[in-house]
Write a protein that binds this DNA or RNA. Structure first.
Ligand code: MN
Ligand code: MN
Ligand code: MN
Ligand code: MN
Lengths: 219, 219
DNA sequence: ATGAATTATAAGGCATGCCTTACAAATCGA
DNA sequence: TCGATTTGTAAGGCATGCCTTATAATTCAT
């Protein structure tokens, strides 16, 4: 298998595994990539053969030791490049994720570590995702789960789809912003958010669908 | 054809064409890539079909309008990344060329231009090659052609093979250095160089084979 | 002008990584 | 527990971009 393909699959598994122990079902990979189930199955078999993952039939895949290390390396490169693109090149926030998708495969270990030094060893990507070996905060909760009246600070947008990043930026719900939930739609179709921080106040109605991508650190 | 393959071939043609009009023989591409003549021929056919090059049987290939533009874009990206790697990340001089070989395919037009701005719109790569749309100086000559006694300034190392870059750095024959030819080996096996500039003086014996990669601007 | 060297072409092969169709096995909810 | 849904497997296909072997066409130097 070509290295870039391996990295793409391992990165996907890493992103999709909520819990370190829970296997990622192949159906999740199928939907992540938009590939056919058969193709994903084939690739998973090969990943297993080469020792990158453990495959539990009818359950899913977990990362092996080397697989985890490789996945962390890819995500580290990806998120470091995102920081470079936004911090040094002033690339728009919502374009950085896609632009980093190719760069992540095109840097050696040495270049990556020099880049990390150059950037000041950042802990998180511009969208709030931790840069390995940093790990996800355990207290992070979804905007969907925040009770009415509660205050919290935006910590992350995930998954980093272009539309979600664009909307989050438009709503000014970016990492570091404070907010409070004013109300929740009865049919769970909308979440009303009152942004409580800093200079301006603002009320936005966030569709439930997109609230799922906004992660918070409770106040 | 995949975009990266197209870029690799067009970049090679651009580098190999000495004169803008002279076709590059397929044998040059064969030796550049280390591919079989049949494979190169197949790819050239496809490049022609897709309009990137003009193919002159038994003569070679020339770049079409779009092919030239694409080739210049690749070389521009390549050399801008080289500048980034050496100037910002302090990557060793002789490692930059190889490290840029993947990055050159992984940056959009927008990222590339932001990178150029970030770097201060440099005119040349760390090894002295012009960054398109800059063009090669017409007065540049090879160290091999410099008469005994003549003085000149190193302008470029080309082709940028790792060994040649390493040796050039070891000899301190890097762009900007001044030198004078002291003597020439009778069997044309060696060129003796007296470095005339700056703080230290130094005499090095440069094998003819490597002198071919050192290009100069006459004093 | 002719033979040697170069260049082109034809034919078949292979690994990669995606696809579809068809069918089998396991899981899971009712 | 049983049937619907999910998941796995088998078989065949396709585009890409490399390979080798063999043969034909052209060029170039003598
Ligand atoms: Mn990628
Ligand atoms: Mn990110
Ligand atoms: Mn390249
Ligand atoms: Mn260079």
């Amino acid at each position: 298998m070509r290295q870039e393909r391996v990295e793409e699959y391992l990165g996907a598994v890493y992103r999709l595994r909520e819990d370190a122990d829970a296997p990622v079902p192949l159906s999740r990979l199928t939907e992540y990539f938009g590939f056919s189930p058969v193709s994903v199955h084939e690739m998973v078999q090969k990943l297993e053969e080469e020792g990158w993952v453990h495959y539990h039939p009818y359950r899913g895949v977990t990362l092996s030791g080397v697989g985890l290390a490789a996945a962390m390396a890819v995500l580290r490169r990806h998120r470091l490049w995102e920081r470079f693109l936004t911090d040094k090149l002033a690339l728009p926030w919502d374009e950085a994720h896609e632009a980093a998708g190719d760069l992540e495969h095109a840097a050696t270990e040495e270049v990556t570590e020099r880049l990390a030094t150059f950037l000041g060893e950042p802990d998180a990507c511009p969208h709030g995702a931790p840069i390995p070996p940093q790990v996800q905060s355990a207290s992070e909760i979804c905007l969907c789960s925040l009770p009415v009246g509660a205050e919290a600070r935006v910590s992350r947008i995930a998954p980093e789809t272009p539309e979600r990043l664009r909307l989050a930026a438009a709503w000014q719900l970016t990492p570091g912003r404070d907010l409070r939930v004013l109300a929740q739609g009865d049919a769970a179709t909308e979440v009303l958010v009152y942004r409580a921080a800093a200079e301006m106040e603002r009320t936005v109605a966030v569709p439930f669908e997109h609230a799922q991508a906004i992660w918070l650190e409770p106040a």
